[in-house]
Simulated assay, not measured.
Amino acid sequence: MLINISDVWASARASHNLYLEGLIDDGLASLGPSALDQRIKLFLEFLKIHLTAKNIYGLNSAISYHQKLQRKISRHERIKVNDFLVELFDYKAFSRRKLRDWSAYKLCRSSNYRVCPYCHYSLMLVTEEKKGGIRPDLDHWYPQHLYPYLALALNNLVPSCLICNSRLKGSADMHINPHLHPFLDSESLHFRCEKPGSSIVDIITNFENVKDQLSVRIDFNGACQKSTNTLTLFQLRERYALLSPDGAKFVGRKTYSDGLEDWFQAHLMGPLHQTPPVPQLKDRAKEIRQLGFDRQDYKNEVFGKMYADLYDQYDRTSLLNNPYP
């Protein structure tokens, strides 16, 4: 995960919870008086509260409850319970391309974001459903084959691209192996564009000669297992290493837009911090035209997290008022 999208389903929560509550009510109505059915009933009532809560930690509570239930019943009963849950929380029915009151397609149309949060590499487009539309994948953070009762939980559905969801993440169990969560964790993976042995001032003042030697890398806390797992699973280092030329071009546009090369060249003969300038207020609309990038809306720009971090690394205000790296 590169970006946090905790508010991705803000406008969809009421509609989705109404849909989910209706399914659970149907399940409750189908249960009989047997001891096993009464156990299932208690579990469904628990799910109705925790799966529709805004707090994502309700998913872990549901997993814990289900694990306790499994230990209290026989193998035959476990199979029966699992079959019941798979049929009740039918994701295939929810995801079929068919017009109805609420569906996976309508959920995706309500998303606040259009770029995959795992890689920030791919657009997640939604087109008109009645014309055979397309929508992004909905990744089950906790795999539905292991946790069928979470198959339709809104907090378990992460909009994502096909590569991240199907080819890279697949059926990885995030309950067992923790990764950075797009709804929960802060953005702790940060991009840098550098040339080994060169300072930022060296890069700016000699940009045309070093631009082909610049490389993009990802900074992270090596002691954070979530970060390490995320980088490995989604192949983020390898994928973004291929974008080093794009990162270098952005750095060139950013430093030119800020007029840094001319300013540094004019002060190479004296101490850079002797009389630091007062940066002029930026014209945001003009900067967006020059960069082809809006720093304030980076989450909805392809490669936006990389560009946002490089923007901050080479920002005029920061560089002219702080010791140079």
Score class of each variant (00 low, 15 high):
Tyr147Ala: 07
Trp141Asn: 04
Arg100Met: 15
Gly132Phe: 06
Tyr142Pro: 01
Tyr118Phe: 13
Ile163Cys: 09
Thr127Glu: 01
Lys131Tyr: 13
Tyr147Trp: 09
Leu146Gln: 14
Ala104Glu: 10
Gln144Thr: 03
Lys130Asn: 11
Ser166Lys: 14
Leu146Pro: 04
Cys116Ser: 14
Cys164Gln: 08
Asn155Leu: 12
Lys106Thr: 07
His120Glu: 12
Trp141Tyr: 15
Leu152Lys: 06
Arg114Trp: 06
Asp137Lys: 05
Val126Tyr: 01
His145Cys: 12
Cys164Arg: 06
Tyr105Phe: 14
Ser111Asp: 00
Arg109Pro: 00
Leu154Cys: 10
Met124His: 04
Lys130Glu: 13
Cys116Lys: 09
Leu146Tyr: 12
Ser111His: 03
Tyr113Ile: 04
Gln144Ala: 02
Gln144Asn: 04
His140Val: 02
Ser111Thr: 05
Leu125Met: 10
Leu138Tyr: 02
Arg114Met: 08
Tyr113His: 13
Leu123Val: 14
Ser103Val: 07
Pro117Ser: 11
Lys130Leu: 12
Ile163Gln: 09
Ser103Cys: 04
Glu128Ile: 12
Trp102Phe: 13
Thr127Lys: 03
Pro136Trp: 08
Leu125Trp: 01
Pro136Ala: 01
Leu162Trp: 14
Met124Asn: 09
Arg135Trp: 04
Trp102Cys: 03
Tyr113Pro: 02
Leu152Val: 11
Leu138Glu: 00
Tyr142Gly: 00
Arg114Cys: 02
Gln144Leu: 03
Tyr142Ile: 10
Trp141Ser: 01
Leu152His: 04
Ala151Ile: 11
His140Met: 07
Gln144Tyr: 01
Asn165Cys: 08
Lys106Met: 06
Ser166Met: 08
Cys119Leu: 11
Leu146His: 13
Asp139Cys: 05
Tyr105Val: 05
His145Leu: 13
Cys119His: 10
Cys119Val: 05
Cys116Val: 10
Gln144Pro: 00
Leu157Ile: 06
Lys131Leu: 15
Leu107Gly: 02
Asn156Asp: 15
Asp101Asn: 15
Pro159Arg: 04
Glu129Asp: 11
Asn165Pro: 07
Leu157Tyr: 01
Arg100Ile: 00
Leu150Glu: 08
Ser160Ala: 13
Gly133Trp: 10
Asp101Ile: 14
Gly132Leu: 02
Cys108His: 01
Ser160Val: 11
Arg135Phe: 07
Leu146Met: 14
Pro148Ser: 11
Ile134Tyr: 12
Met124Phe: 08
Cys108Glu: 04
Val158Ile: 15
Gly132Trp: 09
Cys108Phe: 04
Pro136Ser: 08
Ser110Leu: 14
